[in-house]
Amino acid sequence: MITAEQKPLDEIREMIAPYKRILVLGCGSCVAECAAGGEKETGMLASILRMAAKMEGREVLINEKTLERQCVKDFVILLDDIIQDYDALLSLGCGAGVQAVGDCFPEIPIIPALNTEFLGETKDQGLWLENCLGCGDCKLYHFGGICPLARCSKHLLNGPCGGSVGGKCEINPEIPCAWQLIIDRVEQQGGFERLEGIFPPKDWSKKQGLGPRRIIREDQQR
């Protein structure tokens, strides 16, 4: 899923400062799953902003609403009836959600309340890991199901750099060396020699070759 974290409150307050009627808009999908922009977090952020405005003696209308998904137009149009009451939207969606809502209501400024982070795995409660770059050309089969592009700090495709020590990455001892994980996994599956060949340079045209990517599925269109 898409992971995100809430921006520092000061940054959010600076961006909303010019506006008097603000709709704080949550999203019930990925960002709810990672406890950044779901109904609960949206309610909390709206309360904090209301309280801050009150303490400053400013008259600001701050309401909240959470859509099931901000990145799908079918859900965004549910705002049609209420949008005219506001002069700004503060979105707790991911970057795709913020832009989808912005496209539906181009006359109203939309402000991101989150920093969108990565395509992540929920490893544990309160722990998300960046495990996929969304490169458009999956090679996980060759690396024991562990992506060296996403998980090695230097995106190395041919084994660990000289800084791999005791299974840890040299740039951050908190994170495992992706190549130690790959070697252990592939050894466990009995295919060590698979890692002995030279893996060719990555084909980045699958990610950036035609500019921003689109997926077109005619069978899904109506």
């Binding site: 084994g159 660990p160 000289g162 299974g167 060396c177 130690q180 002995e196």
Partner: peptide, 22 residues
């Protein structure tokens, strides 16, 4: 370059062999 002192030790030779093959 080669680092005989990095981990995992058994893969250090694989890295060297790959560099030679390259």
């Amino acid at each position: 370059a080669a680092n005989p002192f990095g981990d995992p030790f058994n893969f250090r030779l694989v890295r060297l062999a790959k560099k030679v093959a390259a």
